[in-house]
Write a protein that binds this DNA or RNA. Structure first.
Lengths: 261, 261
DNA sequence: CGACCCCTTGAATTAGATCAAATAAAGTGG
DNA sequence: CCACTTTATTTGATCTAATTCAAGGGGTCG
């Protein structure tokens, strides 16, 4: 499961341009000097969909950023079932800084491009540069928020609530990859970046139930299923009501969508 | 909902002795100078069970450590249901450093003693002391691990698995409060620090189902229910098998229990 | 002693899992 | 470009686990 290694220069592009573009990755707030040092230990790597980036229990030698695509963090249960414990999208960090082995495998949910650092060298650099460390910390805080949002999702009593909540979370949390305006520019369009099977694992249910629930949401007029991975939101308020989560509000969602268009 | 304020000296006791004892809170790795500065902005506060420490959506002015007792982070749904998104036990930090308002309320699940810092002053101190910041970061990483462990729990398909997993997590993650040796010193004894209602919210189910599942575990000979909050583990291997999580192993659990006794 | 809270138990109902199969989409190789 | 294989998604029927509604015990506290 090897991805092709790219020269470090390409990653200069990544940390300098791409991350600034996304305006969220830890490299956007650094001095030129700090960025340069980061680039000197960075490698751009690509992995095809399904590739294992880090195996479960493996001593992780690398950490890094997602540049493009989606990673899934998952855990294999003794019965063979797999539970996804986190998704990582562009600008998110992957790998465990300053801690031991991970209990989770990291796999490519789509074709991905990653900006990788040797873990030890990255940590050494971080310890020398408090500002860099601060950025790393903010990144971790962000992951913690994501984890808690998701716990809220999993706590929902019905699959319909989980699914509606997930779709709205896609818009709010990952507008760049998760949503946009429909062709007629009058509705929100949602792009689901993972398969039904992954979605089922993510929400702790089965493919069949996911499928049924998607169709049910469509039948009740809340969404329209354009392709299996492309929905148009017909009734945003209704979808929010269906999620049973009062934190979502139409204005914020629309704002996120616009920021992505 | 006011707790009694304690003088800063008491908290000197906390950050100097208590946290070192627990050997996990961020203050155990600091220099005397750093500790002293921390103490100068610290306040010891007590809250009774049920008290709201931070309301949902409130701009949190304080952050701090749990010294004694258990806090629950929860979210109130529009339908009135409450979902617990996290438990905080001694040495855990609460509140949001460097980020805005929280979407979660923080409530005392038991009577609690907290070591509180003014958020702004704490942040200022952290920015000046990279080593302190590093400790805060490790603390956040720890919370992230806890969140992911828990996501694994919530992803389990049956309530029995969730419950067994929760009991084992109590031992592994919070040995000091969650477990010990039984009076005859031959079995692991588990102390559940929260009510059945909280447990139900924590695992995304109902009080009735929790009660039934506890009794079912007891009937199948895995545990013995001494009091509603006190169980004795009769068959550790069986309990692990029931959790369906291969990460738990008898040796590690026993080691955790011994460290707590 | 009565009121209240928490835990437990029972019976009826329902949502979701499971088993099974059809349809649709996406590659593959000639 | 088309037949063919493979994979992903949808639909149906059945069955099980969990929710819901309802009520009964066992504490604690005023």
């Amino acid at each position: 499961m090897n991805g092709a290694n790219g020269p470090a220069q390409l990653c200069a592009h990544c940390t300098l341009l791409r991350c600034v573009m996304h305006n969220a990755a830890f490299c956007s707030e650094l001095s030129d000097d700090e960025r340069e040092k980061l680039n000197s230990i960075a490698h751009l790597r690509r992995f095809p969909k399904g590739a294992t980036i880090l195996a479960e229990g493996e001593e992780a030698g690398i950490v890094g950023n997602v540049i493009e695509g989606v990673l899934k963090m998952q855990k294999t249960q003794p019965d063979g079932r797999q539970q996804i414990v986190g998704l990582l999208v562009p600008t998110d960090m992957f790998g465990r800084v300053f801690t031991g082995t991970s209990d989770f495998a990291i796999e490519a949910a789509t074709d991905v491009t990653l900006c990788c650092f040797d873990k030890r060298r990255f940590e050494a650099l971080v310890l020398e540069h408090p500002r860099l460390e601060h950025q790393v910390m903010l990144s971790i805080l962000d992951e913690l928020d994501a984890a808690r949002d998701w716990i809220t999702l999993l706590g929902a009593q019905t699959v319909a609530q989980k699914l509606a909540g997930f779709l709205l979370m896609l818009c709010r949390r990952w507008p760049a990859i998760g949503c946009g305006l429909s062709p007629d520019r009058r509705h929100v369009e949602i792009h689901v970046p993972i398969s039904r099977a992954d979605l089922a694992q993510y929400l702790g249910t089965t493919v069949e139930t996911i499928s049924r629930t998607v169709q049910a949401l469509a039948r009740s007029g809340l969404i329209e299923v354009v392709t299996p991975t492309q929905f148009i939101v017909i009734d945003l308020k209704g979808l929010i009501a269906a999620s049973g989560n009062e934190d979502f509000d139409p204005a914020t969602i629309l704002q996120c969508v616009k920021s992505a268009s």
